[in-house]
Simulated scan of single mutants.
Amino acid sequence: MFDRFRKARAGIVGSVLPEARSERKRTHNLFEAAAAYVSACAEDDQERIDEAAGWVSPEALSFGVSELACRAVIALARERDESPRTVARELLGLPAT
């Protein structure tokens, strides 16, 4: 019974105290990984690219980067009052259709 009490107390203390939280390994979701990966690529920071690429599987990272690209194109299209297709082609340096 006291063992269960100690474990429960340790869980509560670990969730409240910052130093206890830092001892646990932090997991990253695929969107955090994608955001870190893309921003590191934009800044040409190979160390951060490698770090973010290790947070999730390559498949999950690919999905996250794709989702980020879609959301970015949609946001830019709304901001510019243009179609997502026009914005995407412009960002890639492709001729207008």
Rank of each mutant, 00 (worst) to 15 (best):
Phe2Pro: 12
Phe2Gly: 11
Phe2Glu: 11
Arg4Tyr: 10
Arg4Glu: 14
Phe5Cys: 08
Phe5Lys: 15
Phe5Leu: 14
Phe5Gln: 11
Phe5His: 13
Phe5Arg: 12
Lys7Ile: 14
Lys7Pro: 06
Ala8Glu: 09
Ala8Gln: 10
Arg9Lys: 11
Gly11Asp: 07
Gly11Leu: 02
Ile12Val: 12
Val13Asp: 14
Val16Leu: 09
Val16Tyr: 05
Val16Met: 09
Val16Asn: 03
Val16Gly: 06
Pro18Val: 05
Pro18Ser: 02
Pro18Ala: 02
Ser22Val: 15
Ser22Ala: 13
Ser22Asn: 13
Glu23His: 15
Glu23Ala: 15
Arg24Asn: 11
Lys25Val: 12
Arg26Thr: 03
Thr27Gly: 08
His28Arg: 07
His28Asn: 07
His28Gly: 02
Leu30Tyr: 11
Glu32Arg: 00
Ala33Met: 00
Ala33Glu: 00
Ala34His: 03
Ala34Val: 01
Ala35His: 10
Ala36Trp: 05
Ala36Tyr: 03
Tyr37Lys: 05
Val38Glu: 07
Ser39Met: 07
Ala40Pro: 09
Ala40Tyr: 05
Ala40Cys: 04
Glu43Met: 09
Asp44Trp: 12
Asp45Met: 02
Asp45Trp: 00
Asp45Pro: 01
Gln46Tyr: 05
Glu47Leu: 11
Glu47Thr: 13
Arg48Glu: 08
Arg48Thr: 09
Arg48Pro: 01
Asp50Arg: 12
Ala52His: 00
Ala52Cys: 03
Val56Phe: 03
Val56Ala: 03
Val56Ile: 01
Ser57Glu: 02
Ser57Val: 02
Ser57Pro: 01
Glu59Ala: 11
Glu59Trp: 05
Ala60Gln: 08
Ala60Ser: 07
Ser62Ala: 15
Ser62Arg: 13
Phe63Pro: 01
Ser66Thr: 11
Glu67Ala: 13
Glu67Ile: 08
Leu68His: 07
Ala69Thr: 12
Ala69Cys: 10
Arg71Ser: 15
Arg71Gln: 12
Arg71Asp: 12
Ala72Phe: 12
Val73Phe: 06
Ile74Trp: 09
Ile74Phe: 12
Ile74Thr: 15
Leu76His: 03
Leu76Asp: 06
Ala77Ser: 07
Ala77Lys: 04
Ala77Trp: 03
Glu79Asp: 13
Glu79Met: 12
Asp81Thr: 14
Asp81Glu: 14
Glu82Gly: 05
Ser83Met: 01
Pro84Met: 08
Pro84Glu: 10
Arg85Thr: 14
Thr86Ile: 09
Thr86Cys: 02
